[in-house]
Design a protein around this nucleic acid. Structure first.
Lengths: 235, 235
DNA sequence: ACAGTATTTATCCAACGGGTTAATTTCTGT
DNA sequence: ACAGAAATTAACCCGTTGGATAAATACTGT
């Protein structure tokens, strides 16, 4: 025959395929949102056929929910390894802030996915049974730190742990998630190394100052940036 | 004739039409994002024909940019009326926080539109000449407050005004923009009246405590919520 | 009145995009 | 070996959607 027998056809790899699909979907949903994501692109990025998505996961929305659940699972899992119990309360909070900040930096898709889900008013997340259950321990972890902080006299008031965590997440999330528009309107690159370092200092200083009522070493650094001619600094 | 002459046909109203189109587009883009927005729905909501969008504004992306610019213009315009110069620095900051919070509450489309634009990495905003220019005065307004606060001895450190504003916006923006997912994962309704009031107190207390180093009346209230059995409180 | 222009309506269409059908190929147990 | 199941491919279907064309209708100045 003119056409020789094809040498390498394909091998089966259901688990690998599934993972590649989910990873590709995560990238695609994060980059374009739910409506903007293209099933064909996901298939292509996964090195697969579009039919595979439906075979291994389900339709577009199922795919999306699975990605979202995996995303939450990942961050909460990493947080569990933080070992805050053995740190001084202020240290523990600083560590939580540091971790959150760096996690968001390392995982920009997380931010985008959450925004996408909130645009949908958490329609999909509400259907998820997995996600709801994984947050009580996390809240308790923070509550324990706060309680210790109050008892040891380090913290002035026993803040609501949910409120506190939302604030910590907010300071990091908003800065990074909105860095594109903020960089444009304020005319400076918020993602460059120095800006990032400065932001982390600022966040830790802000939260610890409020909790402890004392100025920290880091807080002192808040003075420095102001002296720079901050406006019109081209990106 | 069986079919009588149509009584009311239609009147011309170019300006009104344009406004209705932009308002409808704002709602649509905010509700569904750029990719999810439907040109037909915008036309319908505006009480217009789809052709009108193209006649009065341009294609979908032009429409989107115009909405976005209008959105920024509106918030910055309202901020200019805040009159922070005549307030005590801590009062001025509290007022800015209060305003920002309530503006976000009153204008949820603003949050959604910014998120959408950040998903697109500010691609459209970068094309806009209008938007960039309107922010220097705003930053200066905040800088002036901070400077006065330091001079009067109210504030411990001269924080970078951009950094400070980003933090203020972050505390309000993230809470509201992500209220859907946060309400699900923490199992409580973050948008109900008491929760909103509590949040505003918390934000003001947090920022002022960090700036002034002193506990405020509002900060005392941070203690209360913790005593509630916060977990598993059904929405 | 009436001609010319501005505004609005009524259709149409080509491309796209999610999802499906059916055929093909690899793997597994016996 | 081989039958049946699992995994993968190729091709197609059909409603949707952004955008375009052309015709109709209201307004304006003269």
């Amino acid at each position: 025959m003119a056409k020789a027998k094809r040498i390498l056809k394909w091998q089966r790899d259901p688990e690998g395929m599934r993972l590649r699909i989910l990873e590709a979907a995560k990238q695609e949903f994060a980059a374009h949102g739910l409506a903007g994501a293209r099933v064909d692109r996901i298939a292509e990025k996964a090195g697969a056929n579009k039919r595979m998505l439906y075979y291994h996961v389900g339709n577009k929305e199922d795919l999306y929910l699975e990605v979202l659940e995996g995303t939450y699972e990942k961050i909460r899992a990493e947080e569990r390894t933080l070992d805050l119990e053995h740190l001084d309360p202020p240290e523990a909070i600083a560590r939580l802030i540091d971790f959150t900040w760096n996690y968001f930096l390392r995982n920009p898709e997380f931010l985008a996915l959450l925004n996408t889900e909130n645009l949908a008013r958490a329609k999909h997340l509400k259907r998820s049974t997995k996600v709801k259950s994984m947050h009580s321990p996390f809240v308790e972890m923070i509550r324990a730190v706060v309680t210790r902080g109050v008892e040891s006299g380090n913290f002035r008031a026993a803040v609501d742990p949910v409120q506190l965590y939302i604030s910590i997440a907010a300071l990091a999330f908003f800065y990074l998630s909105n860095s594109a528009t903020l960089s444009v309107i304020f005319g400076r690159d918020l993602l460059k190394k120095e800006a990032r370092d400065e932001r982390l200092d600022h966040m830790i200083a802000l939260v610890l100052a409020a909790l402890t009522g004392k100025s920290t070493a880091a807080f002192g650094r808040m003075e420095m940036p102001t002296l720079q001619p901050v406006e019109h600094q081209v990106m």
